[in-house]
Amino acid sequence: MVRHLPVLAPPAAGGFRLSRRGNRALWLAMLLVPPALFFTVFVAYPIASALVYSFYGWVGVRRTTFVGLANFQRLLGQQPFQGWTINAFWHNVIVFVILLIIQDGLALLLAILLARNPRGTRFYQAVFFLPVTLSLVIVGFQWKLFLNPIFGIVNKLLRVAGLGALAQPWLGQAETALLALILVNAWRWLGFPTMVFLAGIRAIPEEYFEAARLDGANEWQVVRHVTWPLLAPAVTIIVILTFIGSFNWFELPYVMAGVDGPPNRSTDVLGLYFYRTAFGEISAGLQEFGLGSALAVLMFSVILTVSIVWTRILRRREVELA
């Protein structure tokens, strides 16, 4: 895919042209300055200040002395912080991988099926997209109730179906809690990648499919050699968004599990760990802005680096496939 830049006409001499160019500059400035200011005040400044904070010691909310990399050293080299950091990081990785496979994989499958325009396509589209429109907090509370071991509908249904042996305290066991949260996340978000993939497939010219079929390609070959390569831009954006979403994961585990990632940190992710460290657990911990800022800086660095590298790799893949 080659992007063409608009070719600007060479500027002609003359007062009229100059003033038009002046107007154009003013117009551009008016369009660009507000978002640039907004970005500086609400994005660049907080990130820069978090970076500065992370190099200081703190007493409550009062900054004390410059401590260099001591906060980073504690997070990465001193127990129990080191264990918590690694644990939370791995959980983010697990969340990303499983969401990529289950949520985005299923979304791709659904998009391919919906692209064949079965009966009720619009209805299915609406159904799949519906949870995306619900508030995440409501989804979290609702599923927390569904999964409640005593009052919850999930275990009740399992027992009614004679599968009582499968009934579990889903959110209370280290083995099932994170997976339960990931599945709820997939349930909530499934519609979004589905719509993106569907739009991507519908944008592929029909002739390509016809040509492939005329050449005797079966369904699998059509998907593998026509749909998949031409869907590359959509895949890029979904993979990157899933990655960013997975590493910024906070609301759902916060609502469904709690700020300390219970049981025994099995649902802990970097977002919760950051919140707990910087703002304190009301019934257990203390606020530590230095440590929290250091964690925020680490998270930001990981997300930024991986996103950039990945975007480049995936974009190159788009070009190769196209």
């Binding site: 129990p80 300390d260 911990g285």
Partner: peptide, 23 residues
């Protein structure tokens, strides 16, 4: 023991469910 991180509360709150789970 709730004056410095990791607080005693944080540590014991994390370990007790594991003990009750038999791990």
């Amino acid at each position: 023991f709730r004056y410095e991180n990791p607080t005693g509360s944080t540590l014991v709150q994390q370990a007790l469910p594991e003990m009750l789970a038999g791990n």
